[in-house]
């Protein structure tokens, strides 16, 4: 079963690493979510935040983070698969009937929810990072002007992306799946890492459900708010105003994809 007999290859160490990488990814997910929630503020907030991410350490931070996340992701998935393989082998003949008592759907389907999350991440990267799945990334135009090449209109990109009801629903479904993964994983990692004494004993059982609810509510609030038109694309609004203005014989006042993005809302003509 196990090819390596070294203590560091034991099932417990591997499971511990799965827990640890899971914990790191939860930190990332929470951070990512907090950043995303800036969308509820005026567009400058999220756009400046995105600019900061790209600027920090002369652009090194984002690449280091991406590399780190990729590694964590790969280790998390790789070790899980090695454990899962052993688990499958450990019971070659299944029971005719089996009545689970303590587990729940989420805890029994971690591999499934994990794979869905993985596919979602791939889509998410293609969607917003690479911008190859629809046209929402077209809205991510530089708006910073000279000296600020990384100030992009992330706000418009996100809003445009989520105005599509199919994409919004897909994201919501995936967040719920992620929530289920975290529901179990967020508590389970404490057990795997052996953190259950004193203060920790009181929080471990709640940690997963709390993280899951926070992540699902936080992340889903964005597509829902956009679908509900609570958040609108400021570029759209400005364009509409510009149309009205031009009908009234006034000059356009702002940047829009139509005019090549050379103008900015704050620059009067």
């Amino acid at each position: 079963m196990m090819t390596c007999a070294h203590p560091l290859c034991s099932s417990i160490v591997r499971k511990g690493i799965v827990g640890l990488t899971g914990a790191l990814m939860i930190v990332f997910v929470l951070g990512h979510m907090t950043g995303n929630l800036l969308i509820f503020l005026p567009p400058e907030a999220i756009n400046s935040y995105a600019e900061f991410l790209h600027e920090a350490g002369h652009g090194a931070l984002i690449w280091l983070s991406r590399l780190g996340l990729l590694t964590i992701f790969a280790v998390h998935i790789g070790l899980t698969i090695s454990l899962k393989y052993e688990n499958k082998k450990a019971r070659p003949i299944a029971y005719a009937t089996h009545q689970p008592l303590a587990s729940n759907w989420a805890s029994r389907h971690m591999l499934l929810t994990g794979l869905v999350v993985m596919l979602f991440v791939v889509y998410h990267l293609l969607h917003f990072t690479a911008g190859v799945t629809d046209h929402s990334a077209d809205w991510r135009r530089p708006i910073g002007g000279p000296g600020r090449p990384h100030l992009l209109d992330v706000h418009s990109m996100v809003v445009n992306g989520f105005q599509n009801p199919y994409i919004a629903s897909f994201y919501i479904v995936c967040q719920i799946v992620l929530g289920m993964h975290l529901w179990h994983g967020g508590s389970s990692l404490f057990q795997s890492l052996g953190i259950n004494r004193g203060f920790w004993k009181r929080i471990t059982a709640w940690a997963g459900p709390v993280v899951a609810v926070v992540v699902v509510v936080g992340n889903c609030s964005i597509p829902i708010a956009i679908q509900a038109r609570f958040i609108q694309c400021h570029a759209d609004i400005e364009m509409k105003k510009a149309e009205i203005d031009s009908k009234n014989g006034k000059l356009p006042r702002l940047w829009s994809p139509a005019n090549g993005g050379s103008a900015s809302a704050s620059q009067p003509h």
Binding site: M1, M2, A5, S10, S11, I12, R14, K15, L83, E86, N87, K89, A90, R91, P100, L101, A102, S103, S107, R108, M110, H184, S187, S188, Q191, S192
Partner: peptide
């Protein structure tokens, strides 16, 4: 591990 038992997935059955 050597005896071929599976691993813990913290489901507490």
């Amino acid at each position: 591990d050597e005896e071929g038992f599976g691993n813990c997935t913290n489901q507490y059955e």
